[in-house]
Design a protein around this nucleic acid. Structure first.
Lengths: 194, 194
DNA sequence: GGGTGAGTGTTCGAAAACCAACGCTTTTTT
DNA sequence: AAAAAAGCGTTGGTTTTCGAACACTCACCC
C-alpha cells in the first residue's frame, strides 16, 4: 500500500516550512501554528501526521540519521585505507543533496532528537569496533583514540556542510596528516601505515 | 467566500510546474499529464481547475496582462514627462517579482494567449490615445509613431527582464535620447520638449 | 485573585483531491 | 494499413484535508 500523494505533499510542505522557519526562529519558540501557516496546512492535518513539533523533529532526525548510518558503513574503510581524496569527494556528494537541511538540523539539540549527536555516535562506534578488531595491544585507551577519530571526522563533515562544493584544496593533506597521527597510536611503533 | 487553501495550493503547484516545464519543453509538446506528474497532482484535479492546458496558459496570461495594464497607466506619464531614471527603477521593481515567470511566458505565442503581444498592445494603445490628445497636426502618421514608441518600451522591458537587477547604467541616456527623437515627431518644430 | 490571550490537542461535517477506470482521438510504430 | 501507445476528458467511490469549534493549560497583567 503506497502512500497517498496528498500525504507525501503535506509532509513535504510541513517539513520544508519547519526547516525554513528554523533558520529564523529557534526550535523552542516555533509553534505548530507557525509551521501550518507557513505551509498552508491546517492544524488538524498537522496532528494527523505528527503528535507534536517534537515528533516532527524526531522523525526528521531519525530519517537523516538512518541515511547517514547506511553511508558511514560504506565510507568508513576509506579513511582507514588512506583514500582521502576519494573519501572527501564521496562525502561531499553525500552531503551536497542535503546541505541546507543538515546545516539547519545541526543547530537543534533536543533530548530525543539531536542529529549532530547521532552522527557523532555512529562514527564513534565505528572507530570503537575498528580499534578493537586490531590485534595489537593498546598503550592508549580505546575511547580516547575513538573520540579523537570521530571528532576529526565530524569536523570534516561540518566543514563540508558549511563550505559546500568549493575548494577542497589543502584539506586533503591536513586530514591525511591527522589520520596518520591517530592511527599510529594503535599500531606497534615499527608497524606504521604508509 | 474566500477560496479554500487547497485550491490555492493546487493552482500554485500546477502553475509552478507548468512554468518550470516550459523552460524545458515547448508549450505544444507539454501534456497535461506532464504538468500533473511534476506537481504531484492528479489529472482529475487538473480538470477541476482548468479546461485544458490552453485554459491554464490563458488564465496566467490574462492575470499578468491585467497586472501589467494596471501598472502601465501609472507609469506611462513618466516616459512622456522624461522621468527616465524613476521610470527605469519603478519598472525594474515591477518586473523583479515576476522576472522568471514573465521570461518564460514571453516565449509562448498562442492565438488566444500571447503575453508579449498583450503587453505590446497595451503600450500601443497608450501611445495612440496620447498622440491623439495632442493639439498639433501630425505630419507623420499616428500609427507609425505609436508603434515606434511602444516598440522602444517593449525593448526596454525585455532588456530588464533579461538582464535583471544589475546595472541600468548607460541605459537611461540611451532611452532618453530615443524618447526625445520620437516625441519630437508629434510636436511643431519650434515646440521641442526639454 | 480573576481575567485575558496565546498555544495545545481533539472532534466532526463539508469540501477538495485522489485514483482507477472508461471511451475516445491522435500519434507512433511495425 | 493495422496495431500499439500515448494523450484527452469524464466519472464515481474513497481518502485526505480543511475549517471552525471546543476544552484545556500556561504565562502575563491589572
Amino acid at each position: 500500500m503506497a502512500k497517498d500523494v496528498r500525504k507525501i505533499k503535506t509532509e513535504r510542505d510541513l517539513q520544508n516550512a519547519f526547516l525554513s522557519l528554523l533558520t529564523t526562529k529557534g526550535f523552542r519558540q516555533l509553534t505548530v501554528a507557525d509551521i501550518c501557516q507557513a505551509s498552508l496546512t491546517s492544524r488538524s492535518t498537522f496532528y494527523a501526521h505528527y503528535l507534536d513539533k517534537y515528533d516532527l523533529l524526531e522523525q526528521m532526525v531519525a530519517h537523516y540519521t538512518a541515511m547517514f548510518a547506511q553511508r558511514v558503513s560504506v565510507r568508513f574503510q576509506q579513511i582507514i585505507a588512506g583514500q582521502i581524496d576519494d573519501l572527501l569527494h564521496s562525502l561531499l556528494a553525500d552531503m551536497a543533496e542535503n546541505r541546507q537541511t543538515l546545516q539547519v538540523l545541526f543547530t537543534v539539540h533536543e533530548p530525543d532528537a539531536d542529529l549532530k549527536a547521532n552522527f557523532y555516535q555512529l562514527l564513534y562506534r565505528q572507530w570503537e569496533t575498528f580499534i578493537k578488531s586490531q590485534p595489537v595491544t593498546h598503550p592508549v585507551p580505546v575511547d580516547l583514540i575513538a573520540s579523537m577519530g570521530s571528532n576529526v571526522q565530524m569536523t570534516l563533515i561540518e566543514w563540508i556542510i558549511e563550505h559546500g562544493e568549493n575548494s577542497l584544496d589543502g584539506v586533503a593533506e591536513a586530514v591525511n596528516t591527522i589520520r596518520k597521527a591517530i592511527l599510529i597510536q594503535i599500531k606497534a611503533p615499527d608497524d606504521q601505515l604508509s
